[in-house]
Amino acid sequence: MERTRAALGRACLDTVFLHNPERTGDPAVLPIVLREAFAVREEAATAGHLSTYGIATWSGFTEGLTTVEELDRLATEAAGSPDHRLRVGQLPVSLVEADVLELALDSRGPIGEAAEHGWQVFVSAPCTAVSSCGQRLTILPRCCGRGCPSHRPACWQPPHVQE
């Protein structure tokens, strides 16, 4: 984070994501790795170098490797208090990865759970899908008749957090 702060010329970063922690290898060590990473981020926040942090996961929620409840518990342990700075989640949502949206309509799944905690949710790859042979397809721009920057995540905030 120090290099990022220096490169950006910022004393305090708005949000830092922990990307794809599910790729640590052994699912049994994932909670340990997350708690340690959250502790480092909590220390940075206490020092005034970071406002919030989040987790960006491609498959952590869909493969059952973690939940918002578990992340909240680990962040609480890392901070020593429920007043932690874990406030953001990012996960893939697209025409192919629509299961989380179905669950969210009933206030369930990672998006519904994040809303209950007042987290912001960013979606990755909202305008793309992957075919069965792994080829990247850009579907939504064709359907809507206009382009969509698939490399830029969309953001959804729970209604009680929106400004």
Rank of each mutant, 00 (worst) to 15 (best):
A154I: 04
E116G: 12
A98N: 09
V96R: 12
G109W: 00
V100R: 10
C127T: 15
T128C: 10
L103D: 10
D106R: 12
R152W: 11
C127H: 12
R87F: 02
P82Q: 03
S132Q: 14
G118I: 06
P92T: 06
R136H: 08
E116D: 12
S132R: 12
S150L: 07
Q90R: 02
E113R: 09
R136F: 09
G145N: 07
S94V: 10
F122K: 06
A115F: 12
C148F: 09
G112Q: 07
H151Q: 11
A129P: 05
L91P: 02
D99C: 03
R152E: 11
G134V: 12
A78V: 03
D106T: 06
T138V: 08
E102W: 10
L105D: 13
W119L: 02
P92S: 07
I139V: 13
S131H: 11
G147K: 03
A78I: 04
P126S: 03
A104V: 02
P126T: 01
Q120A: 13
V123A: 09
R152V: 13
G145A: 09
G109Y: 00
V130H: 08
P153R: 05
P141L: 07
P92G: 06
G134M: 14
Q90M: 13
Q135H: 08
P141C: 08
R108W: 05
A115E: 07
L105H: 12
T128N: 06
D83M: 10
E102R: 14
E97A: 09
A78R: 06
C148N: 01
A125D: 09
I139N: 02
V123Q: 01
V123L: 03
A114V: 00
E116L: 03
L91C: 00
E102D: 13
L95R: 11
T128F: 02
S124H: 12
Q135G: 09
I139K: 03
Q90T: 04
S107F: 10
V93F: 11
V130K: 09
E102G: 15
E77N: 01
P110W: 03
W119C: 00
S132E: 14
A104I: 01
R152I: 13
D99H: 10
V100K: 08
D83E: 09
P141G: 07
V88L: 05
C133L: 15
R108E: 15
G147Y: 09
A114G: 03
S81C: 10
E116P: 01
C144Q: 15
S124R: 11
D106G: 03
R87M: 01
L95Y: 12
P110G: 01
S81F: 05
C143S: 12
A154K: 05
D83H: 11
G145E: 04
R146W: 14
G147A: 04
F122R: 07
G89C: 15
C127N: 13
E116K: 05
P82M: 04
A125W: 08
V100P: 06
L105G: 10
V121L: 09
P110C: 10
D83G: 13
A114P: 01
H151S: 11
P149E: 10
V93M: 14
E97K: 07
V130P: 00
S150C: 10
Q120M: 15
F122W: 15
R85T: 06
T128R: 14
G109M: 00
L137T: 11
L86K: 00
A98D: 13
